[in-house]
């Protein structure tokens, strides 16, 4: 499998604070990669750096052979990376349909908008029922589906998700994770940041553990699930 995204010793900070000081990881085309770690470990910061929302101080981020660190978010989206941010960041006073359609920013994704929309509605039938409803009035789970749908509308090659399970009921989380597997089966590579470590590890092919701004462990799903340290620190066994 070819490498789609790689981070090489990336350092990102806010002001005087260094949030991530040595993030190196690799996502291969077609994979689901989980990035796990405790609160404040730097997971969100790492995703934001890839999305172009933060400029790394050191290191390189390479997507599909091109350096993308320091590029604008619009450029990163145009290259094929869609980001489902923490807190979903929908447009609350606009309808579900408008939120979804806004996700198709590039000329190529706009041209395919009807087909992509049909696919999103196929994945999340609930959104089809709620198309004309304002996004701000949706339940948390429906908002998360809208946020994922909006990202898919960009027809990304890499879908990055930041804590998609946060604040949702277990049954809704299960639906969303099932759909992530379906999205991946459809050919989209997934980079998933989660605090729900067990679910994330079960879904992924490979995973990385981020602690205090640095990658401290990595491995395949089975290796990580069997790792004694991870069991003790994150799975409570």
């Amino acid at each position: 499998m070819s490498t789609l995204l790689s981070l090489d010793a990336v350092e990102v900070g806010y002001g005087d604070v260094v949030a991530v000081h040595a993030a190196s990881l690799e996502v291969r085309a077609g994979e689901i990669v989980a990035l796990i770690g405790s609160n404040g470990a730097g997971k969100t910061t790492t995703l934001r750096a890839v999305a172009g929302l933060l400029r790394p101080r050191r290191g390189r981020i390479v997507f599909d052979g091109d350096r993308i660190d320091g590029r604008s978010p619009a450029d990163v989206v145009a290259r094929g990376i869609a980001h489902v941010p923490e807190g979903r960041q929908l447009f609350p006073t606009m309808t579900v349909l408008e939120n979804l359609e806004l996700g198709a920013r590039t000329a190529a994704s706009r041209a395919q908008r009807p087909e992509t929309l049909a696919r999103v509605f196929d994945l999340f039938p609930r959104l089809a029922e709620r198309q004309t409803q304002l996004a701000g009035t949706l339940s948390g789970g429906e908002q998360q589906m809208t946020a994922i749908g909006r990202a898919l509308m960009a027809r990304p090659r890499l879908l990055m998700l930041d804590e998609p399970s946060l604040g949702l009921a277990p049954i809704v989380v299960a639906t969303i994770f099932d759909n992530l597997a379906r999205i991946n089966a459809g050919g989209t590579t997934v980079l998933l940041v989660e605090q729900n470590v067990l679910r994330a590890l079960r879904l992924c092919h490979r995973g990385y553990v981020l602690e205090n701004g640095a990658i401290v462990a990595q491995g395949t799903r089975d290796a990580l699930l069997a790792d004694e340290r991870i069991k003790r620190a994150y799975l409570g066994r």
Partner: peptide, 18 residues
Amino acid sequence: RQIRAAADNPYGALVIGT
């Protein structure tokens, strides 16, 4: 719609590549 979106949630608009 992009103008309304940016008015509604500027960070969200940035995230989707506006």
